[in-house]
Design a protein around this nucleic acid. Structure first.
Lengths: 193, 193
DNA sequence: TTCGTACAATTCGAGTCCGAACGATGTCTT
DNA sequence: AAGACATCGTTCGGACTCGAATTGTACGAA
């Protein structure tokens, strides 16, 4: 469990570390707590309802997306699930091997692959989602409905901000410079450093 | 970017999927948006300030913890950073190889290992954190200070709920049954299935 | 002293995840 | 018709992740 020491204390220490430079405390607290909450919620859901079905968080989210939206192109599923195309390929393969999803070529565009739930997958979600939703209610148990709406709305605005302004912001920060490739992951082959 | 389609629409579809069974909409929206926001924020931070320094999110968090709290035992760092001890071992090794952190044995208890920043690590954080904090302010740009405090407070209560009640809740759900081992990870050696 | 127990970090195995590179397909230009 | 170009899903390399097994240190009891 993260977070034994208080965030406010951390803020004071950070302030001290920087001497006079001002810190945006409230904004820092939002980011820190978003991440803490995400980890805590994910861990709880994985260890309660998902583990028993032998599903990881990601696998569940993918199933959920296909369940809700019906047969969908993989790129849309990846976007909705918040994972990369490459990751989805592997997850879909695993789910297909377990007989929970089907994959089918697109009738007119040969590049596309469509994902849909099998009967077994459908049945799984029918039984699983209500239990999942109950745990969602558990983790938010300290908030009443109105507070839930306020928090969800605030988070929605964070997501929107990044989605709508993020790319421009990053370009601006880099000031035209190349966006430095990820250090891990497959290297460019052409020119060795 | 996840989340082109609206969550409310998803809720209606989920409701339809389940026939009459009631869904806790507001709670579901909180969890869904926590996760969306966490991914969006992490991605933005990685692709803006962190990528340039060749740091992953996890590596940055570890550096941040050691920077703020000073030389610390690894188990505390892992807990603060929200990762397992095993993961920290690997991340610390990476950071040590890059000359950003030092590891040292505990003076009296030979089992402990202490982590601290090198001069280079210290200098890095001195320059990096203000830029990181500016991006924290950017992603929360659609919220004023009071709203930030409200959101952070709501999230804090989610974390507390899971930390204080989660384990008991999970035991209760399993009803005494063994908590089904993680499918991935090292297998028990004793008895093959 | 020499156990046994407790608890520390590390190693190890299986797997997730990202993003660059890649091959296949579709679409536009000429 | 044929090449250039865009876009799709997949493959691939490396860092990260968990938790079980392991190794090493500390400390109390016999």
């Amino acid at each position: 469990m993260p977070g034994r020491r208080s965030i406010t204390e951390a803020e004071q220490l950070a302030q001290a570390k920087l001497g006079g430079a001002p810190i945006r405390h409230d904004q820092m607290a939002v980011v820190a707590n978003i991440y803490r909450a995400a980890s805590a919620v994910r861990q709880h859901l994985e260890n309660s309802v998902l583990r028993g079905c032998d599903l990881t968080w990601t696998a569940f989210v993918v199933l959920w997306v296909v369940w809700i939206w019906g047969e969908s192109e993989t790129r849309h599923v990846a976007e909705e699930a918040g994972i990369s195309k490459g990751t989805l390929t592997g997850v879909a393969r695993t789910l297909e091997a377990r007989g929970l999803v089907k994959r089918a070529g697109h009738p007119t565009d040969g590049r596309l692959v469509l994902l849909s739930l099998t009967g077994e997958g459908e049945a799984l979600m029918q039984g699983l989602f209500p239990r999942f939703n109950e745990e969602e209610a558990f983790v938010t148990g300290q908030l009443d409905d109105a507070e839930c709406r306020r928090v969800a709305d605030g988070l929605r605005r964070v997501v929107l901000q990044v989605e709508e302004q993020g790319e421009g912001r990053r370009r601006e920060l880099l000031g035209g410079a190349d966006p430095a490739p990820r250090r891990s992951g497959r290297r460019a082959r052409g020119q060795g450093a």
